[in-house]
Design a protein around this nucleic acid. Structure first.
Lengths: 295, 295
DNA sequence: TAAAAATACTCCATAGGTATTTTAT
DNA sequence: ATAAAATACCTATGGAGTATTTTTA
């Protein structure tokens, strides 16, 4: 049996007339009769009752017609869906994101995804550390990540979106809190709050090396998992923290953000995906992300 | 596009190997590659990523595979269902029934339908008069009827199931209530309760002609639509009624059923269906009904 | 008897086969 | 070097066409 048989049967069942059905199908009447006969033989079921004056559906034929219409519509729909997925207009995507991008960049990305690709359904995971993001991409749990460029990324395609200067978060009562800008060396005596993860956090590594370059080793007092927690700890007066500039979007009471003068650094923000899982959808998301960064 | 393309795609997508898929399909590998290529060209979508060492599905291909499996399963299911309907093991049936068969024959028929043809779903309408049953068959509202053989039945196939003797229903206080059997002539002075319908009821016609043959014209006091109402009216002392014997199954308090001696008659009970709507299912129901009558 | 489906036959498009080449590991 | 997919080419099945017959309302 082939779709041809189903298409032909549908035409005859809807026209209830072999001649008209054949015209509608752009074939001659005899081959149409043949194909319908074949279909009935293969099913072992009479679908139509013919006389020269009237063609009627049997009860089995009526049921079969309903199902055939569903099948033929299903075939069309399958093609349409495949095409939508192929050009990235439809599909499913899980996006992971580091903490500092969670509060400014991610909402902008989501808004433009909703507008530009309404057929795509997106799962989001914010507040993740870089090693977890890389693991997520490799395990297939994430399709796309916004992160700090990691060292071991041979199987990933990483595109730097922009460089973000580091700033300092200090509690409101801090001796430097009213300054607009400080040098890193001025923080030599302060307690530091950093991300947990045995130094595997890209931000931690940069922060420590900057401090060393500024002539001191930071005294790490607390380790936390999320950026929001980190800022809350600073607000509570438990120490200071070096964070990328967009973290300032996290406007928590009791925290002041200061620019860094001498000894400051910057950290790249990048998009990454598993090279082997590259897809049109990822390209379109990457395009939207570039725009979101530009805004 | 033909089902062949979908079957072949399914095989390749499940095997992820053109050679194995071709073996599973009992064809050679090159024509399989060709057909898959055709499918992709027609859809305008890459479904598979091939290298000589590995075949993988694209995201569009994964979605398409899911839908293709549904379609192919749907094609099989459609054939199975059509076959079930064609041999009467499945389908839908509306059965109409005269009042006197509603209380004994119809329940037995329904029980055996449930047992023998569980795939058939049945709608029942009991307590109908013969003209309404015939109209129902002709309009398509009923597929099958249990009735008294009507006069104008050229387009119906009518099969007599059995002859049912008429009996008399009298109220408990009636002067003849304690007799086992009466002659029709003894009811010459009684009020009669009959079915409504301007004499078009087959039972009414027989009853009147029997009375006339017994030498009197029945005095019709009440006309009712349902047999159950008719018996209730008799129980209430509003008159007597001639009813077919199975009506006695309707055991209402205050009613006595008496056999008829001289002047009695009998009424055929029959099954009927529209000859043009004859189907295997109707044959099977008719078979069950014959058994139910025999019990 | 006239309209429509079925049958008889013919033809060619194409599915599928065989042999070979290309390609990626 | 080798396994596997793609390409080239050929064969033959069967889908579709034309002409005709059969059927029934």
């Amino acid at each position: 049996m082939e779709l041809r048989h189903l298409r032909y049967f549908r035409a005859v069942a809807e026209e209830l007339h072999f001649g008209r059905a054949a015209r509608r199908l752009h074939i001659a009447q005899p081959p149409l009769s043949q194909q319908i006969r074949q279909l009935e033989d293969e099913l072992g079921v009479a679908l139509l009752v013919r006389s020269t004056r009237r063609v009627e559906l049997t009860p089995a034929g009526e049921d079969y017609l309903r199902r055939v219409i569903e099948i033929l519509d299903g075939v069309d729909a399958a093609g349409r869906h495949a095409r939508r997925i192929a050009d990235g207009a439809s599909g499913h995507l899980t996006i992971g994101c580091v903490g500092s991008a969670t509060y400014s960049l991610l909402p902008r990305l989501v808004r433009s995804l909703r507008e530009e690709l309404p057929g795509v359904d997106v799962d989001l995971r914010g507040e993740m550390l870089v090693p977890a993001l890389v693991d997520g991409l490799r395990s297939g749990a994430l399709h796309f990540a916004v992160l700090r460029p990691p060292a071991d990324a041979a199987d990933l395609t990483v595109e730097v979106l922009r460089a973000e200067p580091l700033i300092v978060a200090v509690p409101e009562g801090h001796r430097l809190a009213e300054r607009g800008s400080v040098d890193l060396a001025e923080l030599a005596e302060d307690d530091f709050v950093v991300h947990a993860g045995q130094g595997r956090s890209v931000l931690n590594e940069l922060a420590v090396s900057l401090c060393v370059a500024a002539g001191f080793t930071p005294f790490i007092r607390h380790e936390v998992a999320e950026t929001s927690t980190l800022v809350t700890f600073v607000a509570a007066g438990l120490g200071v923290a070096l964070v990328p500039e967009p973290t300032a979007a996290l406007d928590i009471a009791g925290v002041r953000y200061l620019r860094l003068g001498h000894g400051g650094g910057q950290l790249d923000l990048a998009a990454a995906y598993l090279t082997s899982a590259h897809s049109p959808l990822i390209d379109r998301v990457l395009g939207l992300l570039r725009t979101a960064v530009g805004d």
